[in-house]
């Protein structure tokens, strides 16, 4: 009792009456909570390097091997999305807490167990576009960078879109590799690909209308498919 009152807990200090049972329950809950938070932090510090206490690429590699996944696995990107990680290859404590608290994972085993649910969450229609655009932003590593080279874009498309839109993504990657007009891709074009996969009948392309506001690269892609179809 005295231990719990010594903690400067706001609701506790305001309570005029000392209702023992309630206090005990709250204290237990808090202890559990704080210990979960503590364990999450502990887990963080097992990967982060001092100072300034950030998980760096090396730490992420270790994390990956602890989770039993490759560091290019889409699930690590999903984890980054869940953290809303700002900078590629780095997880800050705040980001780490944001994700792991939400996933209720305070051990590496729990985190591993939470991955399938995270995958389902990403695939939910309300999150898909957000995750897709995040994938692009996450790969912008330099200050004020707005483009990603087509090679990286191909790898990224493979990672985030191929499982859902296999023939489209294969065609698109093929096109991106043989064309010479575009060496970098911007966000607008990136989102254009997503729209294309989601909205256009493939491989018929019968509902594609180039009078709509498609990015030119999508027009060119469609022209290329059509001309190759003979």
């Amino acid at each position: 009792m005295s231990g719990s009152s010594s903690k400067k807990d706001a609701p506790n200090s305001k309570r005029p009456f000392n209702s023992g049972a309630m206090d005990r329950f709250l204290a237990a809950a808090h202890k559990k909570l704080s210990s979960e938070a503590e364990r999450i932090d502990q887990l963080f510090y097992s990967y982060a390097i001092t100072p300034p206490w950030v998980i760096q690429p090396q730490g992420i590699d270790t994390l990956c091997s602890d989770l039993g996944i490759h560091h290019t696995d889409v699930r690590i990107l999903m984890l980054a999305w869940k953290m809303q990680a700002e900078k590629q290859g780095y997880f800050t404590l705040d980001e780490w807490r944001r994700a792991l608290t939400a996933l209720r994972a305070d051990t590496i085993i729990k985190l591993k167990a939470a991955l399938p649910e995270l995958e389902r969450e990403v695939r939910r229609s309300s999150n898909r576009a957000n995750f897709y655009s995040y994938a692009f932003k996450y790969n912008l590593t330099e200050e004020k960078q707005k483009f990603i080279d087509t090679e990286t874009v191909c790898a990224l498309l493979n990672l985030v879109l191929r499982s859902e839109f296999l023939p489209q993504v294969d065609a698109l990657i093929h096109y991106l590799k043989i064309q010479t007009d575009y060496r970098v891709i911007n966000m607008d074009q990136w989102m254009g690909f997503y729209r294309f996969c989601n909205e256009i009948n493939f491989p018929e392309l019968d509902n594609y209308d180039s009078d709509q506001a498609w990015p030119l690269i999508v027009d060119d892609f469609v022209d290329w498919i059509r001309s190759h179809r003979g």
Partner: peptide, 13 residues
């Protein structure tokens, strides 16, 4: 028209 489209995309950028 495709040049106009390009310019629009550049303005979006």
């Amino acid at each position: 028209p495709s040049e106009i489209k390009k310019r629009i995309e550049s303005l979006i950028e």
